[in-house]
Design a protein around this nucleic acid. Structure first.
Length: 254
DNA sequence: ATGCCTCAGCTCCTGAGA
């Protein structure tokens, strides 16, 4: 079984690339972030025409998430229950007996900002909810654009970017709180090349110079950990003429 | 230099992303 996550930075722009990627990488489930489209404009038929099922939850201009799956998704949940939020950031569903949670974590903009305070509240609510989900669904994957670097290995310039957004102690503590629930960073279960990133700024030829961050993650539960065969970042779509700034991350389970 | 790209939108500038 293969599961993947990809922040597409507008599904309207990236739909052809998503369809191409799925044809070349026929994963069992793919979660998307930053679809940036309302549900009435979501390209449901184009995705279903490929044989995939899809659930989606979007809004105008910002955010928006989707869950594309080979098998139908059951018990679909949109956003964190009991957490008031006017942004579309979470979609969850059970696919082939695996609870798949796709999430677009808040950016946070800058420490001390209102958006950072919102990010902290959101992370707190996510933690409580994922803990509850894990009790009901031991076979669980939490994946998406976390907008958090786990440690300095995930940062192209850890000295220059120390304590800036995505690299703060508070964000990393929230990430570790998720790990403490019984989750594992699938990417780090394997030897990986130094300076492996999942996002590169559009500016300053950042991709070409490999000046990036690893902020897109796949966390697998204790029950799934023994089944993980590999986890990779697919940089190929980032080389497209008109790419998303993020690359897909893929986990393989047996 | 609160910029450099990219995207959306009450679109020819602005806000947001990360």
């Amino acid at each position: 079984m293969q599961l993947a996550t990809w922040n597409v930075n507008s599904l309207t722009v990236r739909l052809p690339q998503v369809l191409d990627w799925l044809a070349a990488n026929p994963v069992d489930a793919l979660v998307l972030q930053e679809t940036k489209t309302t549900d009435d404009k979501f390209p449901r038929e184009a995705i279903q025409a490929t044989g995939y099922h899809v659930s989606y939850f979007g809004q105008k201009t910002y955010n928006g998430v989707a869950l594309i799956s080979r098998a139908p998704a059951h018990e679909v949940v949109k956003n964190i229950p009991d957490f008031e939020d006017d942004m579309a950031r979470v979609i969850a569903g059970t696919v082939d007996g695996v609870r798949v949670i796709g999430a677009y974590f808040p950016n946070g903009q800058a420490p001390e900002s209102d958006k950072f305070a919102y990010k902290m509240r959101w992370l707190h609510a996510l933690h409580a909810w994922v803990g509850h989900e894990l009790k009901q669904h031991p076979r669980l994957v939490l994946m998406g654009d976390f907008n958090i670097t786990v440690d300095d290995r995930d940062v192209w310039d850890p000295v220059g970017l120390k304590d800036t957004i995505h690299c703060t102690v508070q964000e990393r503590e929230h990430f570790q709180n998720l790990i403490q629930l019984g989750l594992h960073d699938a990417y780090r279960l394997f030897d990986q090349a130094d300076k492996s990133f999942s996002w590169w700024d559009y500016r300053e030829f950042a991709f070409r110079r490999n000046r990036g961050l690893r902020i897109d993650h796949i966390l697998v539960s204790d029950a799934l950990k023994p089944e993980v065969q590999g986890c990779t970042i697919d940089k190929a779509p980032r080389k497209n003429e008109r790419p998303s700034d993020h690359a897909p991350v893929v986990v393989t389970l047996n």
